[in-house]
């Protein structure tokens, strides 16, 4: 009975969405219908829709090669600050829920580390951390950025937890890293207020486009986000595994 009702509801929703989305413009086609207009602000004929503005002028305005990065960090940097806050709140919630109520007798036996796993992790771990750092340092040049880079670094800690059953994250030190990187993000934004710009506006030289030291504050912010996300995800995994004794 329950199966029939839920299947019926799911089918209804599917039929509804199917009908609506079949009539929706086909992805990629709708841009043929747009029109250009004369913009008095820029003094030229252009389609001033927001994504077109980002694609056409984003590179010269921010110095970043990756337009998605320039949107995430500069144009909508305040949004990203909120996003980091949401992640922080969730990590705090997981820590609160899973570390306060440890029931007794649930402690799993600590096994000896598997030789194959520990040797393999010892070989691979430095490269994983290196790739993670590469991804968030090059966020303005290549696909990637602080969030994927931090996730890659957190997988390194997950590997350590898998290979060494006795391995424990030093949660105090991790939370110090997390706090300081979050503070760095906010302080970078506040400095632009001090310099008379809007919050999180670029104040550093943009440099030569396409080089590592370019795009002003974007790499700095993404390094801070990378450290923050990496430490938060590692802390979440560590709490889910059982946390510090």
């Amino acid at each position: 009975m329950r199966r029939a009702v839920s299947a019926l509801l799911a089918l209804l929703i599917f039929a509804y969405l199917f009908g609506v989305l079949l009539k929706a413009p086909i992805p990629g086609d709708y841009r043929d219908e747009r029109y250009n207009y004369y913009s008095p602000l820029s003094g030229r004929e252009a389609n001033e829709s927001v994504p077109d503005h980002y694609v056409e002028r984003g590179e010269e305005e921010t110095g970043s090669q990756n337009i998605v990065t320039s949107i995430v960090v500069l144009y909508r940097g305040f949004d990203t600050l909120g996003e980091v806050t949401v992640l922080f709140t969730a990590a705090t919630g997981v820590a609160f829920l899973l570390s306060t109520q440890r029931s007794k007798g649930e402690k799993e036996k600590k096994k000896e580390p598997n030789f194959m796993a520990s040797t393999g992790v010892g070989l691979v771990l430095p490269f994983i951390l290196l790739v993670g750092a590469y991804i968030f340092v090059h966020g303005h040049l290549t696909p990637g950025g602080g969030f994927p880079g931090g996730a890659v670094i957190a997988t390194g800690f997950v590997l350590m937890l898998v290979a060494y059953p006795r391995f424990q994250l030093r949660e105090k030190k991790v939370s110090v890293v997390e706090a300081f990187s979050g503070l760095a993000f906010a302080v970078i934004g506040l400095i632009s207020l001090i310099m008379g710009l809007t919050f999180l506006e670029n104040y550093l030289p943009k440099g030569v486009a396409g080089t590592l030291l370019s795009a002003g504050i974007i790499p700095l912010i993404y390094i801070a986000i990378g450290f923050k996300v990496g430490s938060e995800l590692s802390a979440i995994v560590s709490h889910m595994k059982g946390g510090e004794e």
Binding site: P51, V68, I71, L87
Partner: peptide, 19 residues
């Protein structure tokens, strides 16, 4: 690029809620 940037936000928040 805008939907991609918004999706990045959505993925991270989805991860947080799933955790």
């Amino acid at each position: 690029p805008t939907p991609q940037a918004l999706t990045l936000t959505a993925i991270v928040i989805g991860l947080a809620t799933t955790a």
